[in-house]
Amino acid sequence: MPDATSLAEEIVQGKGYVLLPELFTPREISEARLQILQLAAEQPAGRFLKAGERSRLYRLLDEAEIFEQMVEHPRVIEVVEAVLGNDMTLGGFSAHILYPGASNMGAHVDYPYFTMTPPYPATPVMEVQVIWMMEDFTETNGAPLFAADTQKLCQSPDPEKFAKLAHKVTGAAGSVVLSHGLCWHDTSINHSEKPRVSVLGNYNPKFVRPLENSAQQMSPTFLEQASPKLRQLLGYEFESAIFKDVQRLQSNNRAAPECPNSVG
Rank of each mutant, 00 (worst) to 15 (best):
S240V: 13
R196Q: 08
L249Y: 13
T115R: 13
A173D: 05
E193G: 11
A147D: 03
T117I: 09
L182A: 05
Q216K: 14
E160T: 13
L145T: 00
N141F: 05
A226D: 04
P195W: 03
P205A: 05
A107G: 13
T187Y: 00
F207R: 10
F238E: 12
Y111T: 03
T150D: 01
H180Y: 04
M126N: 05
V109E: 07
L249E: 14
F243M: 11
A173G: 14
P210I: 05
K244L: 12
M116Y: 04
P119G: 07
F238D: 11
K164D: 06
Q151P: 02
F137V: 02
P159N: 09
P228G: 12
E160A: 15
F146W: 11
L153E: 15
K229H: 12
Q217F: 09
G181T: 06
K194Q: 15
T123H: 14
A215P: 01
G171R: 11
W184L: 03
N202F: 14
D245F: 00
E212G: 06
R196W: 02
Q129Y: 10
W132G: 06
L230M: 13
P157V: 05
V169N: 00
S188G: 04
F162P: 12
N213Y: 09
Q247P: 10
A166Q: 09
P228Y: 02
T221S: 12
P112K: 09
S179K: 12
Y120F: 15
V169E: 01
G201Q: 02
V197N: 03
L182Q: 15
G181R: 03
E212S: 07
H185N: 11
F137S: 01
A241I: 09
Q151Y: 02
A166F: 09
K152Q: 15
A163W: 00
S188V: 11
Q217W: 13
I189A: 06
T150G: 01
Q232Y: 03
A215Q: 07
Q225F: 00
T221W: 03
G235F: 04
N213S: 15
M126H: 02
V177F: 01
E237D: 15
D136V: 01
E127W: 05
T117Y: 00
G181D: 02
R231S: 09
P210T: 11
I242Q: 14
T221H: 08
A143F: 06
Y203N: 10
P195V: 00
K194I: 01
N202R: 13
V176M: 02
R196F: 05
N190K: 13
E139A: 15
D245A: 07
R231I: 10
S188R: 03
I131Y: 10
S188M: 11
T150A: 08
L178A: 08
S240R: 14
A147Y: 03
F114G: 07
L234A: 04
L145W: 04
Q217P: 05
E239A: 14
V130L: 08
Q250M: 13
V169S: 00
Q216W: 03
G201V: 00
A143W: 04
L165H: 13
A173N: 05
K168W: 01
P144S: 14
R248H: 11
A143C: 11
A226S: 14
A163L: 06
F222A: 07
E160Q: 13
V197W: 05
V199M: 07
P228A: 07
D158N: 15
V208S: 07
P144Q: 05
A226T: 09
L182E: 05
Y236S: 12
G201E: 02
V208W: 09
P119Y: 02
S188I: 09
E239F: 11
P159C: 13
S192Q: 08
